[in-house]
Design a protein around this nucleic acid. Sequence first.
DNA 1: TTTAAACCGAACGTGTTTTG
DNA 2: CAAAACACGTTCGGTTTAAA
Length: 396
Amino acid sequence: MDKFQTLEDIFANDQFDILNVKPKVSSARNADERLSASFGEVNDFFAKYNKEPQPNPGNISEFQLYSRLKSIRSDIEKMQSLEEQDIHGLLNFEAKEINSIDDIFNDDTFDLLDDDSDLFEFKHTPKDYERAPSDFVARRKPCKDFDKYEMLFKDIQKDLGDGKRKLVDFKEDNLREGDFYVHNGVLMLLENINLTQEETYVEGKRLRKDGRTRCIFENGTESNMLYRSAAKILYANGKVVTQNMDKVNENFIERFSNITDEDAAAGYIYVLRSKSKDERIIEIDNLYKIGYSKVEVEERIKNAEKDPTYLMAPVKIITSWKCYNMNPQKLEQLLHNFFGKSCLNIDIFDEKKRRHTPREWFIAPIDVIEQAIELIISGEVVKHRYDEKNMIIIEI
DNA sequence: TTTAAACCGAACGTGTTTTG
DNA sequence: CAAAACACGTTCGGTTTAAA
C-alpha cells in the first residue's frame, strides 16, 4: 500500500468508516448545570424556612446545603455564574470598596489576616539548633589489605552475573556485618560494625544506635564511617546483595541424599496452580497452593472441582517432592509463618453453599515457593524470612 | 490505642581537588 | 594561593509502619 501523503488522503481512504466519529451526545449534566441545580436546592431551603441553612449536625441535609453555600461563597467564579439565580440575595454580590487598612482587615474572607502569631516567629523554617560535634569525620582511603577482599568481590560479581544473587532494596534491618551492598554502583562489604551507642530516649531526646564501621569498597578503598552514615548512604543510593541461593540449597541436597524409600511415612509436598474461572482468582498473579499428600498427587487432586481446598476448580501440578517424616500440621504452620501476609484470604462456597476459607494458597513467584519448600524440608527455614515487597527470601 | 522503631529526607559540616 | 567545586560524612526531624 502506498504511503499516505496527507491527512486528507487518510480520511479519503477510510474504507471501513472508522474515522467517521460522531461527537458523543452526553445526557450527563455539565459542571455548570450541576452547580446551578445545587444552588437551586439552597434557594428552595431559603424559600421554605426563610433562613440560611445552618451547620446543624442533627440535620444532615441542612448541613449539606450549608456546606454547599459555604463552598459557593468561597469561589468567586461560582458566585459570578450564579448571580442571576440569586433571588434571595444569598450571595450578596456588591463589590466592597477597599479604601483603608480597616477595609482590608474586614474583608478577610479566609481568615488569612487574623493570625495573632508573631511575624518573626519562624514556624516552618529550620531551627537554629546546636549540632552535636562528631568525634571525627571518616574519609575514604586506600585499603591496606585489599588483597584479602579482592576475590570476594570478584565472586560476588560472578554470582550476580549468574543470577545466583540479586540486588534488592535497602532496608535498615538488613545492615549486617559480613554482608555486601552496592552504593552508587560500587560493591561494598560491611566488614565490621562496632556499636558504641544503643538506641535510648533521654529527656524526650532520641539517641540512636550508632558506632564506627569498617566498609571495604570494590575499588580498593575503605572507610570507617558511622553505622548511621552507612545506612543513610544506602537509603539514598544503595542496594542489598542477597545470599547465594545455591549455598542455601546445598544443605537441603545433603540431607536428602541419604534418605531411602524404606523410611517411614513417605508423602508428597506439591505445588499447584488453579485453573479457576473465578475473577477473584484469575486476577491474582503468582498464586499457588502448597500442600501435602500421603498418596500420589494425581490421585489426591482427582476431585479438585468439588473440593473447596482446591477452590472448587481443576488445578495444574507444577512440581512435587517426595518426602519423609513430614508432619502435615507442622508444614502448614511453617508455611503460614513464613509467608505471613502473602496467604490467600478468600471465601469459597461448596456445592451445599457452605463457606470455606482455604489456607494453603500463597501469593509468591514459583521460584520463591520452591526455595521455601526446600528450606522447610531441610529445616533451614527458621534462619530465613520472606520479604514480600521484593518477593525474595532473605537470610536472617 | 499507644509506643518504639524504621524509613526517608534534608541541612549542613569537613576534607580534598580543581580552578581562576 | 584563595575561592569554588566536589565528594563524602554526620546529625537531626518528621512521617510511616510495626509491635506491644
